[in-house]
Nucleic acid binder design. Sequence first.
RNA 1: GGCGACGUAGCAAAGUGGUAAUGCAGCGGUCUGCAAAACCGCCAUUCGCCGGUUCGAUCCCGGCCGUCGCCUCCA
Length: 469
Amino acid sequence: MTIQIYNSLTRKVEPLETVEPQVVRMYVCGVTVYDDAHIGHAMSAVVFDIIRRYLEFRGYEVRHIVNFTDVDDKIIARAATLGRDPLTMAAQYADEFLAQLERLNVLPATAYPRATHTMAEIIDFTERLIAAGHAYPAEGDVYFRVASDADYGKLSGRSLEEMLTGTRFEVDPRKESPADFALWKGAKPGEPAWPSPWGNGRPGWHIECSAMSMKHLGEEIDIHGGGNDLVFPHHENEIAQSECLTGKSFARYWVHNGMLQLVNPETRQVEKMSKSLGNVVTIDSFLSQYDADVFRLIVLSSYYRSPLTYNTEIAADNARKLDRLLGALLPALGSNASGPAVESLNQSVERTRSAFLSAMDADFNTAGALAALFELVRAINVARDAGVGGDAFSAAQNSLRELASVLGLRLNPQHAKQQEVAPFIELLIELRTSLRKAKQFELADTIRTRLADLGVTLEDGPQGTRYKV
RNA sequence: GGCGACGUAGCAAAGUGGUAAUGCAGCGGUCUGCAAAACCGCCAUUCGCCGGUUCGAUCCCGGCCGUCGCCUCCA
C-alpha cells in the first residue's frame, strides 16, 4: 500500500515517492502576522497537521517547516495605523498564533522560520538570480525576470501572454515586464530595512519562502503546501525563482487546501473568510465557545481540497459528533471476556483499522476515516450493552483513541470551568439520588431540569448518574 | 473574459462502471420512575439538467444550468 496524494502541479493523484526514503520534507506557507488569526488559518494548519500525523503514523520521519511572514506592506501599514513598531507587532501576533496552534492540538513544526531571521539567505538567493540573468536591480528594487523562465505558469496553468493581456494594475515603469515581481524592495524612510547590495530594503513576499524552504529542507523537497489562494502568484513565483536558481524540481508534490467560507448574512452569498472582506471568526472566538476537537471534526468531515462552509449550525452538529465519540469511551458495564459479542467486537476493530488506512491512504480522505471510527463507536456501544468488558473492551477503546489521535483528536476535553463547578454538581447529584430513592421524582426532576437550563446534562445509568457540562 | 474546483437525502459529507458510507436532525421501538445516553428499525428506486458511450452510469464523454476559488492583499 502506498499513500496516494493529489498534486496540484500535475492535477493528478500520484503515489508518494519521497526524495529520501522514509523521510518527508514538507514546507507549508504560514501566515502574514498583521492581525488576529482566524479559523481559515486554523483550517490550513489543521489540514497539514493531519497530513503530518498520518505520515508519521505510516512510519515516515516528517521534517515540517512553517514560516511566518513578519515583514511586508500590510504589516507596515497596519502598524502605522496603530502607531506601533511593525516588527514588535508582528512578533506578538506570531507568538499568539503559536499559542493558538497549541490549543488546536497542532503538533509543533520542526521549525518556524521568519523572514526577518533569513535575510542573509534571501540576499544571497537574490544575488545569485541576478548573476544568472534571472533578475535585475532597478533603482533600489530587484525584480525577477519572468521572461527568463520558460516554464513560468506551469503550476497555475497560465501562459505569460494571457497574464500580460489581463493586466489590470498599474505597471511599475522600473519593471521590464508587467509580470515581473519584486525580490527586493527598497525602503522608504521610516520603514523597517536591512542593508543589501541594492541599498536598504526588505524582501519581496515570494523570495522568503524559497529561501527558508531551501535553508531548512534543501533544494528539492517533497511537499509544499498552503491554501489554494496561494497557487497564483505566490507558489508560481516560488517555483520560478527556485528552479531558475537550482535547475532542480523545487517540490515534488504541491498540496493545497480549500478555503473556509462563510455565508454573508447581508448578501446571502457564500464567500471566503478573509481579513480583507472583514467576515472573520477568530480562533480565539471559536475556542471560547467550542472544544478544539469540534474544530478538528469540522475540518475532518470534508475533503481538505474542497471549500468548507462554516456556520454555527455546523459547529453545533460537530459538537454532538464529539459527544458521540466520547460516549464510546465510557467504561464497560460488564466483564464478559469471551463469546460471540467479544468476537464481533474484535472483528470490528480489525475492519475499522483497515478502512481507516485505505481511506487515509487515498489522498487523506478524512471523512471516510472518520466514518470508520464511527462504525467502531457503534461496535463498542453494542459490546458494552452486551456486557463485554475486560481486555477486549479496553483494546477496542484503545484502538479508537489511537486512530482518533492520528487525526489529532484529543477526545479528552479539558473544560477549565468543569473543574471549578464539579464539586457543586456532584453535591446536587448526591441529593437527587436520595430523592429518587425516596421516590420524590418531582423534586428530582426539578434539579435535573434546572441544571439542564444551566447547561449541565444528567444521565442516569445502572452505575449511577453521570453529568456533562 | 481566462484558468481551476465543485453540484449526492432536511443539513453536512464519503464513495463506486453493476445499483448509494458516515454524522447531525426526524420518525417508530427496547431500556428508564420519567428523561437522557445506548441499542434495534425506518428515513436518497436515486446522486443539478439534457444527450451520448455501455448489457448496465451517480461514477466515462459532450452540452447546458448553478455555486465557489484564482487572475499580482490573501491559509
